[in-house]
Nucleic acid binder design. Structure first.
Lengths: 347, 347
DNA sequence: TTGAAAGCGCTAACAT
DNA sequence: ATGTTAGCGCTTTCAA
C-alpha cells in the first residue's frame, strides 16, 4: 500500500474537495484499471457482472462520487444553463425561473440563477461569470441596453435567448409578451367604460416594456380620438413613494384623471394601496396579474410568466441541439381579466 | 504557424466549448509563456506593463475568456453553492433564494437552484447532482425525512445547512422559523377574541412545519382549557380542492367552528377565497404573510423568508471558512400582524 | 473484456 | 520578471 495514490499527492496542503476518493482510488481498491471504473460509473457496456460488482463495492466502501468538474472539463459540456433576471424575489420571476428549470431538467441540465438587481453592470458581470463557467446556454432578462459585450461569447458558441425584454444592439433570439397590445387593450377597456382622462404610471423609461406599454396607452387613446395630457403620464422607479406621488398628483389636478393604468405588478400594488386610502372611485387596470387580485376585484392585463420561461428555454435547447436558424422573436399574447376595478364608470 | 495549438488538436470532432481560445493560444499570439498569461488574467504581480499590454491585446484579439471549469478542477473549489427548495415559483421561496444569492455573491460564489417539487426522490437526486459538481456548500429545504444519504458527502467535506425544516436522521446545521410558537400565538389571538371552536387547516403531516404548527394550535387550546374536536383539524395537500373541502366540512358541522387557523400561505389564500363566497363572518389567522393581505385585512403570523435564507447562508459560509463547531439549530421569531380577519368576534 | 496513455485548460511549484 | 513542468480527475483513443 506504500504507493497508494493518497500518499503520493504532491499538494496535501490544500485539501481538495475534502480529499475525496477518485476513480484511481476506486480502481486500486477494486484491483481493476481506471477505465473499468469509468465504465461502471457511466453504465457503459463491456464489463463483466463480476468485475462490476467488485467496482461497486469499492465505490460504496470509499464513498466515491464522480467529480463532474473533471468530467465537464474533458467533455466540454457543462450540462448547465444560466438565467440572469432582475430579482428572484419578484413574484413575476419566480414562476418564470421555475419554468426554465423544468425544461432544463428535462434536458438533464442544471440551472444557475443570478439577479441583476436591474443594474446593467451587474448583469454583465453575471453573464460573463456564467460564460467563464462555460454554461451551455444563457437566458437573459436584460437590465442593460447594450449587449455587444456578448458578441465574442456568441461567436464562440454560447447560445443566448433574451426574454421579457429584447437585447440591445445585437441580434439574438427573443421571447416577449405583447406589451404594446396588452396595454392598448387594457386602456381601450377603460375607454369603453366611459373614461376620457386616463393616467399611465409605469416603470423607468429605459426599460423596454415600460416604453412599449406607454406606446400601447397612447395608441388606445389615439384610436378613440382622445387627447393625452402630459400630466397623465408618469414613468420612473417603482418605489412606492414615487408611485404614490404620481397617483396623488394625477388625482389632485383641476381636471383629475378618472382612471389609471398601472404599468406592472409593483406599480399596481402601490396604486391599489393608495386608492384604498381615498373615497373617490378611480378605475384601475394593471399590467401583470397578482395573487389575490381576484378577491380585490382588480382588473388586469395578465401575462404568462411561466410560458415566457418555457418558450425561451425550449428555444435555447433547440439551439443547443444545433438548429441553424436566424435569430427569431416570439411574442406571447396577454389576456385582459375583468374583475371590477376596470369596469367602474367615471366619477 | 504549422504547430499552432489549434492544428494539433486530437479531437476536432467534438467542438469543445465552440473551440474557444485557451491560455496557450493567447501565449502563442503574445509571444510569452503560458504562466505569464495566467498571471495577467488573474492580476498577479510580476509582469511588466509592456508584457501585460501585449497579453491583453492577444486576449482581446482572440476573444479569450478563462475557462473556469479547468480552474475549478485545479483549485478544488467551485465558488458555487447549491440551494434545493420546494418550488421557486412559490412566493415564499423567491425572497429566501434571493437572500441566499446575496450572501453568496458577497463571498464571490454563484448559486445553483433546484426545485424538489416536494418529492424526496427528486430532492436526493438534486442534492447528489450538486455534490457531484462539487458545490462548496449546500442549503437544503428538505422534502424527505431521511438524509443519511448525505453522510458520505458531509464526511467528505461538503458543508450543508438545512433551512425551514430540519434534517432527518442526521445531525446538521439548521435554521427554522418558530412554527410552534407562531401558531400558538396566532391561535391564542383568536381565543383572546372570544373563539372557542377553532379549525386548523394545514399541510401534509409528513412536513415538519405542518406538525409543529398543529402542535402550536393544540398548545394554545390547551393553555386556554379548550377542548379540541378532531373534526376541527385537517392536514393534507395544499391543493385548493382539498382545502375548500376542509373549510366546507368544518363550517357545515352542527357546531361549526367560528374561526380558522391556516397553516401556510397557500392554505390561507384558498381559505380566504372560500370564505369570500359565504356571508358568515368567520375569523381567520394565517401562517405566512401574503402580498396584499394588508388590503384584504388578513391577520397573519408572519415569518421572514429572507432572514431564513440569509441566516442559513451566513452559517454555511462560516462553515466554509472553517469554523469547527458542532451542528447548531437557530430558530427565528415570527410576528403576529393583526389586520382585521383575526379580530372578528364569533358569530 | 480490459487497460495504458494522452490530454481537456488551468494553477502550483519550481526553475531560470 | 518569466517560463517549464507536473498534475487536478476525468474521458477518449487505441492497443492488448
Amino acid at each position: 500500500m506504500a504507493d497508494n495514490a493518497r500518499t503520493t499527492r504532491r499538494t496535501p496542503a490544500t485539501a481538495r474537495y475534502g480529499n475525496r476518493p477518485t476513480m484511481k482510488d476506486v480502481a486500486a481498491r477494486a484491483g481493476v484499471g481506471l477505465k473499468t471504473v469509468s465504465r461502471v460509473v457511466n453504465g457503459e457496456p463491456g464489463v463483466t457482472s463480476d468485475t462490476e460488482r467488485r467496482v461497486q463495492e469499492a465505490i460504496e466502501a470509499l464513498g466515491f462520487r464522480r467529480n463532474d468538474s473533471a468530467r465537464i472539463l474533458r467533455k466540454g459540456r457543462t450540462a448547465s444553463v444560466g438565467l440572469v433576471l432582475e430579482d428572484l424575489a419578484d413574484p413575476f420571476y419566480g414562476p418564470l425561473s421555475r419554468a426554465v428549470e423544468e425544461v432544463a431538467r428535462a434536458h438533464g441540465a442544471l440551472l444557475i440563477n443570478g439577479s441583476s438587481a436591474e443594474d446593467p453592470g451587474r448583469e454583465q458581470e453575471l453573464v460573463l461569470a456564467l460564460c467563464a463557467r462555460r454554461v451551455d446556454g444563457l437566458i437573459v432578462i436584460p437590465a442593460g441596453a447594450d449587449h455587444r459585450y456578448l458578441e465574442p461569447e456568441i461567436r464562440a458558441g454560447v447560445a443566448v435567448v433574451f426574454v421579457d425584454r429584447p437585447a440591445g444592439r445585437i441580434e439574438a433570439d427573443t421571447v416577449l409578451s405583447d406589451s404594446f397590445g396588452g396595454a392598448r387593450s387594457g386602456v381601450a377597456h377603460l375607454i369603453a367604460h366611459g373614461h376620457r382622462r386616463i393616467g399611465f404610471i409605469g416603470d423607468q423609461p429605459r426599460i423596454h416594456t415600460a416604453v412599449e406599454r406607454l406606446r400601447g396607452y397612447r395608441a388606445a387613446m389615439e384610436d378613440a380620438g382622445l387627447p393625452v395630457d402630459d400630466a397623465w403620464i408618469s414613468l420612473g422607479s417603482t418605489e412606492p413613494a414615487r408611485v404614490r406621488q404620481a397617483v396623488t398628483g394625477m388625482l389632485a389636478a383641476p381636471e383629475p384623471v378618472t382612471a389609471l393604468f398601472a404599468g406592472n405588478n409593483r406599480v399596481t400594488v402601490t396604486v391599489v394601496r393608495e386608492l384604498a386610502l381615498r373615497d373617490r372611485p378611480v378605475a384601475l387596470v394593471g399590467f401583470d396579474d397578482i395573487e389575490l387580485a381576484d378577491l380585490l376585484g382588480i382588473t388586469v392585463v395578465a401575462q404568462d410568466a411561466a410560458a415566457l420561461g418555457r418558450t425561451a428555454a425550449e428555444r435555447l435547447f433547440r439551439r443547443l441541439d444545433g438548429i441553424q436558424e436566424p435569430p427569431a422573436r416570439a411574442e406571447l399574447p396577454t389576456a385582459l381579466v375583468a374583475r371590477g376595478s376596470g369596469e367602474r364608470p367615471p366619477a
